[in-house]
């Protein structure tokens, strides 16, 4: 994916705010042949009733609302982000089991003792068998 520093900082800030619970939200931008461009994020509530420190859920109504808002801004939902409180920034077995469509960028930010640390991006392999690392390119003119 290609994005800006302030977008990555906004994801880190969300993860630090919800610590020790997981944060989650949408990556908004445009799909492009060379990778998703991410121009903004939109926070989503973690709708899990329990165990929000190690699980997250974004409900379809929240997705629909985000999609409508994005469309009104000329943007698309191109990915999802969430945090891993006190866990490494790589997809868990649950992340793989719950994965949706190949083509979304999945960003994970590790948050340790309330401080955001490593941030990584992943994409689901076409055969759904695993997540593959996705390079994160920071360019300060990604506005879609």
């Amino acid at each position: 994916m290609r994005t800006r520093t302030d977008v990555l900082d906004a994801i880190r800030a969300h993860g630090a705010e919800t610590y020790p619970e997981e944060c989650c939200g949408f990556l908004l931008g445009a799909a492009a042949p060379e990778g998703n461009r991410v121009a903004a994020i939109r926070r989503a509530p973690n709708r899990r009733a329990h165990h929000r420190e190690r699980r997250y859920v974004i409900t379809p109504p929240d997705y629909l609302a985000a999609e409508r808002e994005a469309r009104a801004r000329g943007l698309d939902i191109v990915g999802i982000y969430h945090s891993h409180p006190d866990h490494p920034a790589r997809p868990s077995a649950t992340d793989l089991a719950e994965a949706t469509f190949p083509g979304y960028t999945y960003v994970i930010v590790a948050v340790r003792e309330g401080r955001a640390e490593e941030l990584t991006a992943w994409t689901l392999a076409p055969d759904r068998a695993r997540f593959e690392p996705e390079p994160v390119a920071v360019e300060d003119d990604v506005n879609v």
């Binding site: 997250y56 974004i58 969430h82 868990s92 649950t94 719950e98 469509f101």
Partner: peptide, 10 residues
């Protein structure tokens, strides 16, 4: 019609 994914993970 809208096709809407349920997003979840750990």
């Amino acid at each position: 019609l809208s096709i809407v994914p349920s997003i979840a993970g750990g």
